[in-house]
């Protein structure tokens, strides 16, 4: 089976799993009582998988960046870049889910809660990552700079989560365990299903994105060759 078929297969499987999970979330599972945030709780089934996946995507960027610095092979840089882009997409989706849930559950669109603040900083860091990439034309330099900044950004995130927690704890000693509000066993099934669906979606998108980037690199090489008189 070639790579194209694998990608198509993964995409279809991801789509099917996500549709099944939607059915489970909205049709099979009952609406929780208002004390447990009621209908808006349904966002949670997709919110958590998207959150985990965006972290995995950024983590993959870190791993690929380190690999690039060690091996100096451009394929690792392409993978790091593609994964960061997916991380950003998942991150924005996460923010939309999260802010909607915030509004429905707490009545505010935004709070400076540790998770939200850390996530905002993470998104800004990766915004800077893409700006940095766009400002370097030479391919190997672009890859190196991006890898170095990617590593710095990834180092910053865990400590920043720790710091926001610390500051928050000073202001509000009681930490709200909002999401640990007792999940029913059957809910885990749908959660797991959407988790699996999103993971497959991530892998499929990553493969497609890497192919696109490689094609662009190939195209650039051909263009350069034509400009240099077909040599």
């Amino acid at each position: 089976m070639n790579r194209k078929n694998i990608t198509i297969g993964l995409s279809i499987l991801a789509g099917v799993l996500l549709v099944i999970s939607l059915y489970g979330i909205f049709v099979v599972e009952p609406v929780l009582p208002a004390a447990q945030t009621g209908f808006s709780q349904k966002i949670f089934y997709w919110h958590l998988p998207v959150a985990i996946l965006s972290f995995i995507a950024f983590l993959a960027t870190l791993v690929f960046s380190v690999m690039y610095l060690i091996k100096k092979e451009l394929k690792y840089d392409v993978a790091a870049y593609c994964s960061a882009e997916l991380g950003l997409v998942f991150g924005v989706v996460l923010m939309v889910f999260g802010m909607t849930w915030d509004y429905l559950a707490w009545g505010v669109w935004w709070t400076w809660d540790p998770r939200l603040t850390t996530y905002l900083i993470l998104l800004l860091l990766f915004g800077a990552y893409f700006f940095l990439r766009s400002m370097v034309t030479e391919r190997s330099r672009q890859a190196t700079f991006a890898a170095v900044f990617g590593i710095i950004a990834a180092l910053d995130v865990p400590v920043s989560f720790l710091s926001t927690r610390l500051i928050k704890n000073v202001l509000h000693p009681v930490v709200i365990g909002a999401k640990d509000s007792g999940l029913e066993p059957s809910m885990y099934i749908w959660l797991l299903l959407s988790m699996l669906g999103f993971t497959l979606l991530y892998v499929a998108l990553l493969l497609v994105k890497i192919d696109i980037e490689n094609m662009q690199d190939g195209l650039r090489d051909v263009k350069d060759a034509i400009e240099n008189g077909g040599k």
Binding site: I121, L124, G127, A128, F131, A153, D156, V159, S160, T164
Partner: peptide, 9 residues
Amino acid sequence: ILYLPVMTP
């Protein structure tokens, strides 16, 4: 752009 988000925490 690179420096400020890294320095925020």
